[in-house]
Simulated scan of single mutants.
Amino acid sequence: MNAASYLWAPPAVASAAVQGSAQRLPVNRLFFVGRNYHAHAAEMGKPVDKSVERPFYFTKSPTTLTPSGSTTPYPSETNNYHYEMELVLAIGKAGFRIPAKQAHEHVYGYACGLDMTRRDLQLVARDKGRPWDLGKDVEHSSVISEIVPMPGRVIACGAITLSVDGQVRQQSSIDKLIWNIREIVADLSLFYHLQPGDLIYTGTPEGVGPVVTGNHLAGHIEGVGEITLTIGPAA
């Protein structure tokens, strides 16, 4: 069979660095859990009652994936660009309708992540019942540190922090997730056949806020690592 012929060169495979390896993790899809810390949900004016609600998700294009240490341009059409520091789960084994007690079997590892957001556009869309794409699926907005391999391990606790220009803005713990890692994997796998290379950004704690050109962001998750980002001038 002849190899496929394209009108122009297809984009490179999105990938993330892996700690201690020259091989990179090929990224399949990017999933994001919305409002997964009570204090953040409250600061967004949308408190969560886990007894009657399920997790909800949005996605971004893998082309938005950006490595830690980058300088990215302040995006167009926003005056309120926000940071959101998150624990990222990398799926390493395919699964569908995964029982929570078996979620660990599908874990490859973890990373630090930033879900950068055009907050003004997101809130307009939310309040009008429209999709969040223009607020969330922003070029350069899915920042990722190197993946730390932890096959079979479920992270249940650990400090998560973010500083902007040396001032702490977000400070919480992974044990405050409303839906924990096992619950997220089990629920998301009811909707999608999870595949190796799927990344799940598990939600952000309270303290989100705006950045401006020149700001330097530095995040940390206990037992996982560090992430940095510098906001450059508008393109």
Rank of each mutant, 00 (worst) to 15 (best):
T202H: 07
S173V: 11
V164D: 08
A186K: 02
R182K: 15
G225V: 00
T161V: 04
H193Q: 09
N215T: 01
I181E: 14
V208C: 11
I200V: 10
Q171I: 10
I178S: 14
I181G: 08
Q167L: 11
L190K: 15
D198I: 01
I184C: 01
D198E: 05
G166Y: 12
D165I: 10
W179Y: 14
D187G: 07
G207M: 06
A159C: 03
E222H: 08
I200Q: 02
A218I: 02
I174Y: 05
T213V: 14
V212M: 15
F191W: 09
G209L: 15
S189C: 00
I160A: 14
I181Y: 07
H216R: 04
S172D: 15
L177I: 06
Q170N: 04
V164M: 10
Q171Y: 14
Y192T: 05
S172W: 13
A186S: 07
Q167R: 13
I221G: 04
T204L: 09
E222G: 08
G209R: 15
V211P: 10
G219C: 03
G214P: 01
D175W: 12
S163Y: 10
G197H: 00
A218F: 02
I184H: 00
I184P: 01
D187Y: 06
G219T: 04
D175R: 14
L194Q: 00
D187S: 06
K176S: 06
S172Q: 14
L199H: 07
G219P: 03
L177Y: 06
I200F: 02
F191M: 11
E206L: 02
R182Y: 06
G158F: 05
R169Y: 05
L162E: 11
E222M: 09
D175L: 12
L194D: 00
R169W: 04
G223D: 14
V185Q: 03
H193A: 07
I221K: 02
N180K: 13
